[in-house]
Design a protein around this nucleic acid. Structure first.
Lengths: 204, 204
DNA sequence: CGATTTCAAGACCAATTGGTCTATATATCG
DNA sequence: CGATATATAGACCAATTGGTCTTGAAATCG
């Protein structure tokens, strides 16, 4: 361990913008337009940064994209960790989790789509950095859903013959497919009914 | 009705390339790279056409893309019409249909992805021509799956409480989600097992 | 103050974009 | 043959791409 130097504040003009807020705004652009269709001017407008500042802070477009993607993933995982919290009734958790997807895949929300699914389709196959993140996200979701299903099963809430492991993979595919079909902006009632019909097959 | 003129053959050098084959090759490029990431030189290389011929035959990049997408959709619908043929055992048809997705969503096939899903995510929200095609395809799939499920139900092959209409929407979401998750190139056995577990919930 | 640092504005760059057009070769007709 | 039509190769175009660099104005320090 090296001795702690007295922290020596920087001397010049302090950083005056919030990098994390810039990442969030950039995320919004990539989300709406996709990676290739997003041009530098789009990002400058959204982040309200100058070219120089943006490149100084993030390196290049691809690095900024990865930060935006990481942010999107962290948000999604954080949401799941609340909805599928182990201290909660597992079936309630699953309902909340699926209700979130109903929300995100109907009407205008549906039409906007999902940065992660769009990125998976656009880049995951040819960009290893992206591929690892996408695979990691699906894995994280699968794990959380499986754990929740296991707790539901222990509580006798699963239909006969439902295996948490395979059911979790089914649910992951289903919700990601909802996001795809959601691009056609289906009515909320449609997504809602579909989700309920699916849940009926798994919950006692 | 105007009188039929004697068909008057064209007089000059005849067209020497097969437009439909060019569309198919272009489809392959869009499929592998996506719309925005496909540049003109990629299309010229794949179709083996000169710039002039390509623009004369197809107008512009976007029109060629629409033809490629139409071709992809026609192929997919044609496949379904065979797999889900009304003269076939409905449950066998569903198994064949799902087996096709297992094939297309595992390993290298999975990594390559699906032109339709990629297009849905990349363009459907902002390009009305594309949006209509994507929505039409999902509708076509849903109809065919629903009809098959109805026949299965009439034959007493469906599990209790399964409704063909909602089950068809579930299956459509599920298979499109398989294509998304397939971008991480899962093992064939994984996709296979997931599909079988799903079918178990619906088939008696 | 003067040193230091960060900012925005925008000039600038080479490469690439989708798209047009010209020149020329070639194939088919009457 | 001569007229007609179609092909290719590639020059050419303006606009845009991602990315660098310069300038000069602020903001903070000792």
């Amino acid at each position: 361990m090296s001795r702690q130097t007295p922290a020596q504040l920087p001397r010049g003009r302090p950083r005056s913008f919030d990098a994390e807020a810039a990442v969030e705004r950039a995320m919004g652009v990539f989300w709406s337009r996709g990676y290739h269709a997003t041009a530098l001017p789009d990002l400058l407008r959204a982040t309200k940064l100058s070219r120089g500042s943006l490149y100084a802070a993030f390196g290049d477009k691809h690095s900024l994209f990865l930060r935006a993607l990481d942010r999107y993933i962290a948000d999604a995982v954080g949401r799941m960790d609340i909805e599928l919290d182990p201290r909660r009734e597992p079936v309630d958790g699953l309902r909340a989790y699926l209700a979130g997807y109903v929300d995100r895949t109907s009407g205008a929300n549906g039409r906007r789509g999902c940065l992660l699914v769009a990125t998976a389709m656009e880049l995951a196959g040819r960009d290893a950095e992206v591929g690892r993140r996408v695979a990691g996200f699906f894995k994280a979701m699968e794990t959380r859903v499986m754990d929740t299903l296991s707790r539901a099963k222990a509580a006798g809430k699963l239909a006969d013959g439902v295996e948490p492991a395979s059911a979790a993979r089914i649910l992951v595919c289903f919700v990601e497919g909802l996001r795809v079909v959601g691009k056609t902006a289906p009515a909320r009632t449609t997504s809602q009914a579909t989700v309920e019909a699916l849940l009926d097959r798994f919950i006692r």
